[in-house]
Simulated assay, not measured.
Amino acid sequence: MWWLSRVRGLQFPRQSFELSYIAALVFGAGIGAYIFGTLNLWASGMAGIARSVEGALAGGIIAIELYKWRHGISLRTGARFALPFAVGVAVGRLGCYFAGLEDFTYGTPTALPWGHDFGDGVSRHPVQLYESLAMAAFAAFYVGSVLNRNAAVITNGFYLVLLYYGLQRFIWEFLKPYGGLLGPFSLFHLLSLFVMVYAAVMLATAPRVSLKHERAAA
């Protein structure tokens, strides 16, 4: 996001650069990653400890909202994380794909021609690639919007990427072999709903921004 700021002179809330803010974000994301990743593993009938990107996201959101409430911060501080998050997931899911069965992010069996055998002789949905491509598409959309000075996307980019991420993740979860918590819905289905509801509320209550392409503070 730094290079976009240099190109367009965008300004991000200073609160999101404070060390205490970063510490709260890292702590919340770390706790969320392990708690939700491990709970999903157990719900799927497997022992051990696991981490989850979506768990980290949920933990980070909760930690930062508590931090902002504690310090009386009413500004929206997530704008500078929109592009890094989208790119991070797109790249990170490639790592999950190459990690194979050990990573436990593979898909359910499929007869589709692009199914992939991760080493157990079963052709499976490469859901990691589905998610990587989906998030790369958002990153491209976001960069194009910023370069065109779309104030609405710049200001609300973080919540737009959360809404998009939650929606695409909710869909891909139907193609994963995770245990259900509520009927056909896994823990990550529920986390995806949480992320989408949070993003939708933040977008619905956001200050109105002109949809015209104009220079705006992020």
Rank of each mutant, 00 (worst) to 15 (best):
W2T: 14
G183I: 00
D117W: 10
V153H: 06
I31V: 15
S16Y: 04
V201P: 00
V91T: 06
V87W: 09
G37S: 04
Q168Y: 08
Y130H: 02
A86Y: 09
Q128L: 03
Y198M: 04
A139H: 10
E65C: 04
A56Q: 08
Q15V: 13
R76V: 13
L191V: 15
L187N: 08
F170Y: 15
S192D: 03
P113G: 12
R124T: 11
S192G: 05
A206K: 04
P184S: 09
Y67E: 07
P109M: 08
L162E: 01
V122Y: 03
F118L: 02
G180Q: 06
F36M: 07
Y97A: 09
T105C: 13
V153M: 13
I49K: 06
G48C: 06
F174M: 04
L129D: 13
W114L: 08
N148T: 12
A33R: 06
L66N: 10
N40K: 07
A200Q: 02
F141P: 03
K176S: 04
L167V: 14
R208V: 05
L187R: 08
M135C: 10
S52R: 04
F194T: 07
L19G: 00
K212N: 10
G78M: 14
E65T: 12
G28A: 13
L66Q: 11
V197W: 08
D117K: 12
R124I: 11
P184H: 07
S20P: 05
P184G: 07
V201K: 05
L10K: 09
A152P: 00
L112R: 14
I64P: 00
R215Y: 10
